[in-house]
Simulated assay, not measured.
Amino acid sequence: MQFPERFSNLPEYAFPRLRALLDHHPAGGDVLHMSIGEPKHAFPAFVAEEIASHAHEFAKYPPNDGAPELLQAIASWITNRFGVPIDPATQVLSLNGTREGLFNACVATCPETKNGKQPYVLMPNPFYQVYAIAAAAVGAKPVFVNATAETGFLPDFSTVPDAVLDDTAIVYLCSPSNPQGAVASADYWRDLLALAEKHDFRIFADECYSEIYRGEAPTGALETAHKIGADPERVVIFHSLSKRSNLPGLRSGFAAGGPKTIAALKQLRNYAGAPLPLPIQRAATRVWADEDHVIENRALYGAKFELADDVFRGINGYVPPQAGFFLWLPVEDGAAAALKLWKASGVRVLPGAFLGRDVDGANPGHGYIRVAMVAPIDEMTRGLHEIRRHLY
């Protein structure tokens, strides 16, 4: 039995690799999971009530694109958050989590060729792994653009040769970034939009961490496109309730962008999508319309940011994250550090190299570990102090 060769060179996913690295060694203390970005703060109490009150709608097929009420709630949130007027009927698609959308958007919009050649799909390095598998699935060639301390932990796409940009169909960018917590400024988005216009590619803006931040709210890609009058078809933004509202299991997300692009995504959804059940959509409608719980959630993370700054003050190379809920901590060797920490303390973190790829023989994540600040703050306090004690 044969399998597609286009997936044969993909490395094993990060978390099976982490289990292979750690699990045949005993934990050196009470196990504390700081490797997976699964929010642990409380989600709004009304979610369960909404699902229960609409449970009878499990007997109905849900609308593929999202219930009108949900699409309106999302469009209103986009307008309130980013100042961008959105038509809920033509510019929004409800998603079963952002990962589905980030993958299917590439399937729906990436051409088979560009300028008669295999198209490129650009992405930051390190990166959320679905970007690379989406490129592989459509037969495009992934190009990994390093996001390092020297580039402000965001990829500098202007360094990519024009010959590559000319044949680029899609650029993925995560802002606030996973794993480093860097935020793309309005100027950064403006420059990327100018490249997209010059070289004719789309931008897929993964903004799922946009509501967890310090100081000012991060600028959005669609927000910048609207302000400068760019073609709305150049940008698709992706959001979800997973981080904003501590609801990773609800699987409520959305894609928003130009009507033609969203129409292409809807067409694929008609044949291969998995719409959310209606009771889930009803709950999501109410969650997108509520900001009080988001403000409370952001304050909880703010306390964790301050704790991390205190614990790692004076560590050479420590950069306080601007947003998101990860720490990107410098070490000599991420895999060796993760194993040492596990054996000494039972604290579980992710080697940075597991999120990156080799470029010119070097992986930009090699000298880092990613630490998820999702546990309750008392557990976080223990975990961060164990990291400081054993690794620095």
Rank of each mutant, 00 (worst) to 15 (best):
F3V: 07
E5L: 13
Y13D: 11
A14S: 15
L22T: 01
A27F: 05
A27N: 05
G28D: 05
V47T: 02
N64P: 14
P68G: 00
F82Q: 11
G83L: 02
V84I: 02
P88R: 00
L95Y: 06
N96P: 06
G97C: 04
G101W: 09
L102K: 14
A108H: 04
C110P: 06
C110A: 14
T113I: 13
G116Q: 00
F127E: 14
F127L: 13
A132L: 06
A134N: 01
V138S: 00
G152M: 06
F153K: 07
L154P: 05
L154Q: 05
V160R: 02
P161W: 08
D167Y: 11
V171I: 12
C174N: 11
C174F: 12
S177K: 04
G181R: 02
A184K: 05
S185C: 00
A186G: 13
A186W: 15
D187Q: 15
W189T: 10
D191Q: 14
L193V: 03
K198R: 12
F201L: 01
R202F: 14
I203S: 05
A205G: 04
C208I: 13
Y213G: 03
T219E: 14
L222S: 10
E223H: 08
K227L: 15
I228R: 07
P232G: 03
I237N: 12
S242G: 10
S242V: 08
K243E: 11
S245F: 04
N246D: 09
N246W: 08
N246G: 07
L247E: 00
G249Q: 09
G249P: 12
F254V: 00
F254K: 05
G257D: 03
K260W: 13
T261A: 10
K266N: 10
R269W: 09
R269L: 07
P275L: 05
L276F: 11
Q281Y: 00
R286N: 11
V287H: 06
D290A: 15
D290S: 09
E291F: 09
V294Q: 13
I295S: 12
I295R: 12
I295C: 15
L300Q: 08
G302T: 01
A303H: 12
F305T: 02
D309R: 11
D309H: 10
V311F: 00
N316Y: 14
N316H: 13
Y318V: 10
Y318P: 00
G324N: 02
W328M: 03
A336N: 04
A338S: 15
A344M: 07
G346N: 01
V347P: 00
P351E: 00
P351R: 01
D358K: 10
V359W: 03
D360E: 15
G361H: 00
N363A: 02
G365V: 05
H366C: 14
H366I: 08
R370Q: 11
V374G: 15
E379T: 12
M380K: 07
E386T: 04
L391V: 06
Y392P: 09
